[in-house]
Structure formats: C-alpha cells, structure tokens
C-alpha cells in the first residue's frame, strides 16, 4: 500500500529536482535578487522592535512634521511620531496580515475544495456559492466585512480572506477532479481505503504545488488590499501602525509630507513585487508547461 505514489509532482520532488540542477541553470538573477530583497524586508520588519529608535506610537507636539535628520531618519509625522520607526513596525503588521490571510484562505479553500471535488452531490451547491462570492468585487466585500465586524486585526484578515477563498476552492477542485481519475486513486478505492484516507493521503498532496503558488499570490494581494482598506477608512485601527494606515493618515499631508505615503508605499510595492516574482518563479518550476507558454 505504501508503494502507491500519491502525488505527481510534490513540492519536495520539485525542490530536490531543482537542487540537482547545475547552479547556473537553476534560476535567473531576477528571482535571486527578489528573494534577497524580500528576506531583508522580512527580517527588518520582524526584528523592528529591537532596533527602532522611538516608540512608534509616542506623540510629541514639540517635533511635528520635522524634515529628515540625524535625529529622525525620515522625519516625523503631524503628531511628532518618528516616521522611520512607524514604517518599520508597520511592516510587521502588514506582513502578518499577508501571511495570515494566505494561510487562512488556503486552509479553508483546501477543505471546501476537497469536498467539492470529491463529493459530486456537494459540488453543484458549493460551486454556485463560490461563483456568487466571486461576482462581488473583493474590495466592496472586504470593506463591508470590516465595517460590520469592527477594525480589529482579526476582522481585517477575515475580510481579506473571504473573497480569496473561492479562487482557492476552484483550484483545489480542478486538481482533485483530474487526480481522482488516476489509477492510484482508483486502486485505493478498489482496495477499500476509507474516504478520509483517500482524500488526505492520495488526493490532497496533488494540491500542494499549485497551492504554494496561489498562496504567494494571495499573500501579495492581501498586503495590497490591507493598504486599500486602510486608505478607505476600513482598515486596522491606527493604534496598530500598518503600511496601509500610515499612508492613509498621510493623505491629508501629502503635499507637505510626501514621505508619509512614499516610504511605506515604496516598501510595500517592493515587497509585493518580490513576492509576485517569486510566485511566478515557483509557478514556472512547478508547472513546466506554463513556463513554455510564458517564455
């Protein structure tokens, strides 16, 4: 029984296959730079509390809207808070929202998708509900959810997750639908394996590779959506700085203090750019057919 291969190309196989290539053939320079930049941003954000010079929430009426200087690296905002400290601490929360939303959407989408793909009876209803959710513009759905559930970190993550779930469900379902016709699944059914065992041991591993790719895209778009939600006034409350709400607060001061939008905007865009590039690379590695098409 353990001899039955339960995955066509698991993430592990791809990784080992990739590592066995000569170094020059593995990847171009682009993804390597993207990975490096991303690692630097992530480390700088995660360890921000250890090195930022000021409390990101400490207001100081004596030092409002200071220009960049040795004292305040990027200057201060209209409340006298240090912009550098706020941007670095804000990155932590933005990244947390990105990773959180990706993990939750993938987990929820995986479970629903497995059920939809495997049980014909549930498929019709589940997919109609998913189609309907996809017809509602993601931003509208997300602001409505935040406005109704309050501006907490959890509710922002849920609000970003709900519109993403249908996309994951569709992906998982399509993988399961094609995998369940494979001989090893038929063999498992014929041998009388239990339903949960077939689902988890034989069908689920097929979804891992595409889900890794989808997860990185969701992470990038979640960071972006967080910023948009904050901008529209439906984001995390300002006691918790995020890249999004720093920029949102900077709106009214845009002409005198463009740094309030520029710096968080730059880090956020750079971060999303790197995540997307790595997502593209992962997709090319996991699905060689796509690579050929995209060139």
């Amino acid at each position: 029984m353990t001899e039955i291969p339960n995955s066509r190309h698991s993430a592990f196989q791809v990784l080992t296959g990739w590592l066995s290539l000569p170094a020059s053939a593995r990847l171009g320079v682009g993804p390597a730079i993207a990975a490096l930049v991303l690692v630097i941003i992530v480390l700088a954000s995660v360890f921000a509390p250890l090195y930022v010079p000021y409390d990101p929430l400490a207001m100081n009426a004596m030092s409002r809207l200071r220009p960049p200087s040795d004292e305040f690296l990027l200057g201060t905002d209209p409340y006298g808070r240090d912009i550098f400290s706020r941007v670095m601490i804000g990155g932590r929360v933005s990244l947390l929202i990105g990773v959180g939303a990706a993990v939750v959407s993938v987990a929820v989408g995986l479970i629903i998708g497995l059920v939809a793909g495997f049980f014909r009876a549930a498929d019709g209803i589940i997919m109609r509900i998913m189609d309907s959710l996809m017809a509602i513009p993601a931003i509208l759905l997300a602001i409505a959810l935040v406005a109704l559930n309050g501006p907490s970190l959890g509710s922002v993550i849920i609000a970003i997750t709900v519109p993403e779930v249908p996309r994951v469900v569709r992906l998982v379902r399509s993988v399961v639908l094609s995998a369940r016709e494979e001989p090893y699944v038929e063999a498992a059914i014929a041998l009388g394996s239990s339903m949960p065992k077939i689902l988890i041991q034989h069908l689920m591993p097929n979804t891992f590779a595409p889900l890794i790719v989808q997860g990185t895209y969701i992470c990038a778009s979640a960071i972006l959506i967080e910023a948009i939600l904050s901008f529209l006034g439906a984001g995390v409350s300002t006691e918790i700085p995020t890249w999004g709400n720093i920029m949102a607060e900077g709106r009214s001061y845009f002409q005198i203090k463009p740094g309030l939008i520029f710096w968080p905007g730059l880090l956020l865009s750079l971060c999303i750019l790197c995540i997307n590039l790595l997502g593209d690379t992962a997709r090319d590695l996991l699905d060689p057919r796509m690579k050929k098409r995209e060139g």
Binding site: I228, Q255, G265, S269, I272, L277, D280
Partner: peptide, 21 residues
C-alpha cells in the same frame, strides 16, 4: 509586474504630484 505591485492610490498620488502639482 510593477502594475500589480503598486497600490492604486499610490499611483494616483504620484500622477497628481507630477502632472497636477
């Protein structure tokens, strides 16, 4: 790739800064 990575409102503010201000 860049178009996907920059938030819509940041693009808006950059355009305002350059072409309007």
């Amino acid at each position: 790739v860049l178009g996907f990575s920059v938030p819509v409102f940041v693009i808006g503010y950059i355009l305002i800064q350059v072409f309007a201000i």
